[in-house]
Each structure stands twice: as C-alpha cells, then as structure tokens.
Amino acid sequence: MIQQIYPSVAHPFRYELNKDLQFAAAHYVPAEAAGKCSRVHGHTYFANITIAGNDLDSAGFLVNFSEIKKLIHDLFDHSVLNEHTAYFQDDDPDRFPTTEIVARTICEIIQSFLDRSGNKPRCLQVFLRETPTSYVVYRPMGGGSYGD
C-alpha cells in the first residue's frame, strides 16, 4: 500500500495504532439518485483504521494488527457488499453500502471486537478510499466514548 498521511484524531490515549488494508469488493447503491452507482460495479477499497487506548494486552499489543485485517479483509474481500445482509440492506437507506456507510460499518465491526478484549481500546477513525479521488473519514460520535 502507498504510504499516505491520514487526518489525525485528537485523543487523550497513550497509544495509537493505525492499520492500513485493502479489499476488492463490488456493490451497488439501491437508489435512483445514485445514478450509475445504482448498477453493480467494483472497487479496490483502501482503508486506514485508527485505534487508541491506554492499556496493552498480555502480549504487549494494543491490538494485534493481524486481527484487524482478518475482521475486515477476510469478510469483505472479493465479495458483493450488498450480499452481507447482516450489515447492508437494500430497503434501508441507512444501510445502503455507500462509502460512508461501509466506513461506519467497518468501525462498528472493529469496535465490537475491541469491546470483547480485556484492555478495551477504541476505534477512533476509519479512513476509506473508494477511488483514487474519493474517500470518506468516519469517526464515531463523541470520538468513541473515551470515558468508557
């Protein structure tokens, strides 16, 4: 992956981890307003995921990089996003697989995993590039509930 500077998130945590990954996936946006994007088409998505926390786990990790890759790449790579009906729905605009909603979904998947860890890090940001000229930055409301 090309090294890139991503927007940074101000936070009070001691550790910050960033994981870059990519996955190839097809999708369509089931809305007339989506124009050509309402037809099935594909992208090579590039994601940068920012995770932060104060405590490391028993292996000295905030979170193991490979776990983050498995959560997202292994789930979405070479798939049709619309077929992941646990995350995306053709009849609910809040769950169409737009870049914004895919970024939010990635954050939610990762945070659900982090919530089960003993050291409780937080997913602070997902940067998701859909094309060379188009990307979204998603941050959970309130920065991910730092007080938890």
Rank of each mutant, 00 (worst) to 15 (best):
Q3V: 05
Q3W: 06
Q3T: 03
Q4I: 06
I5W: 03
Y6W: 13
R14A: 13
L17M: 14
N18P: 00
N18H: 04
N18C: 06
N18V: 12
D20N: 13
D20F: 14
A26L: 00
A31I: 11
A34K: 02
A34H: 04
G35I: 12
S38L: 13
S38K: 15
R39W: 08
H41M: 10
G42M: 11
H43V: 08
F46R: 14
A52K: 12
A52G: 15
V63G: 02
V63Q: 02
I68N: 04
K69A: 04
H73V: 15
F76N: 02
F76P: 00
F76M: 13
F76T: 04
D77W: 03
D77A: 04
V80E: 07
V80K: 11
E83C: 06
T85Y: 03
A86T: 04
Y87A: 09
F88G: 03
D90A: 14
D94M: 14
F96T: 06
F96D: 06
F96N: 09
T99I: 14
E100R: 11
R104H: 10
I109K: 07
I110Q: 05
S112W: 02
R116L: 08
N119T: 03
L124H: 04
Q125C: 06
Y135S: 15
Y135F: 15
V136D: 00
P140S: 04
G142S: 09
G142E: 08
Y146R: 01
